[in-house]
Design a protein around this nucleic acid. Sequence first.
DNA 1: TGGTTGCCGAGACTGCTAGTCTTGTCAAGC
DNA 2: GCTTGACAAGACTAGCAGTCTCGGCAACCA
Lengths: 210, 210
Amino acid sequence: MNPTNPQPTDPQPGAPQPGATRPHTGRRRNEAAHQAILDAALQLLAASDGTPVTIDAIARTAGVGKQTVYRWWPSKGAVLLDALTDRADQDVTGPDTGILRTDLQTFIATTFDAAQRGTTASALRTLVREAARDPHLAELMQTFTAARRTALRELLDRGRQRGELPVGADLDLIVDQVYGVFWYRFLLGHAPLDRTVADRLAQSLVTGGE
Amino acid sequence: MNPTNPQPTDPQPGAPQPGATRPHTGRRRNEAAHQAILDAALQLLAASDGTPVTIDAIARTAGVGKQTVYRWWPSKGAVLLDALTDRADQDVTGPDTGILRTDLQTFIATTFDAAQRGTTASALRTLVREAARDPHLAELMQTFTAARRTALRELLDRGRQRGELPVGADLDLIVDQVYGVFWYRFLLGHAPLDRTVADRLAQSLVTGGE
DNA sequence: TGGTTGCCGAGACTGCTAGTCTTGTCAAGC
DNA sequence: GCTTGACAAGACTAGCAGTCTCGGCAACCA
């Protein structure tokens, strides 16, 4: 959320620890500017239909100097990802009804829905486009998506322990089938990502592979 | 292959045929330069580990002026894709042994293998990266991949007609599961794309979804 | 209250790249 | 020999990421 916080902003006064840094003096960071930047980034990300979002535009929209952006984030991609994750609810816990197929259906349908709701879709698309050129952003995104992949894997593991999947099932492959289809269709846009597809996909993955 | 063939600029007085073009005069196009550009593009594409390939570099490597590149291709992306498809064998016919699962295994394994063999992998990765920014290239790639998607779909359709898939099976979803997993793993590189995965994937798709 | 520190907005600047334009040259035909 | 048009070389424009500089201002301290 705040990847470049080099110094503690409010160290206790009169703490001359050998390793401790000198207490902070000078003007404090402007939290309003921080939020304005995230808001501007999200707004531009949402409005851009694939068109790259520039740092200049973000700074100008936020009414902020470019240097202020780079003081808080290391790269453009970091700002964009931070803007998006700021809004995404981070509690990625899969459903757990005790029936694998139902849980899987819900998980997949929720994923499809969340990605396409509101302005998230164009923002996400732009983000991926940027990640294709920005290795740093790509790494950040991988961390971000890892939480969702893990949640899905745990959901599958619970099902396997209940005997709803064969012991030798390749859970990683199933995870990749779900997210593979998702990203493939999401980015190419040649076929829908709706409830029907989610159900069919869940069914295919639960009944197959034994 | 020759997207910019300029039209005769002036309607000559006393032209006998309205639709006929004036016979070509002047220096002829240099086929060696054409090939040198494609070779240079492929070479740089293969050597670049994700780093963008520049037009300047292509022209310099080919010993050619930049204008010559743009005379033959409309954009950088077009050159890159042309360079790649020049080598890829274009007869995308799926196997047909009469057994769906075997055909599917072969098709998937061949796809995995072809993408990773030799210098193709890095070239393909760079190409996708460029396509994320270049709408023209993205369109070209979609045409390129459509042939492979069609071949897979026909393979599945043959199997369905033989009763190896339920009549109501969603063939498009199966196709997207195959290519979704492929691109997802190919681009992220977090898991293998080998023969074992191909077999498991084929098995999952044939026995599931009924 | 005045001094020091460090964030702030503004915008100039560098470096890189796609794509265009210019120039002088050279090959093919008339 | 003249016209035509492809050619190599490279200057040029435009756009963007990221850096640097500058004057201003807020927070803290003595």
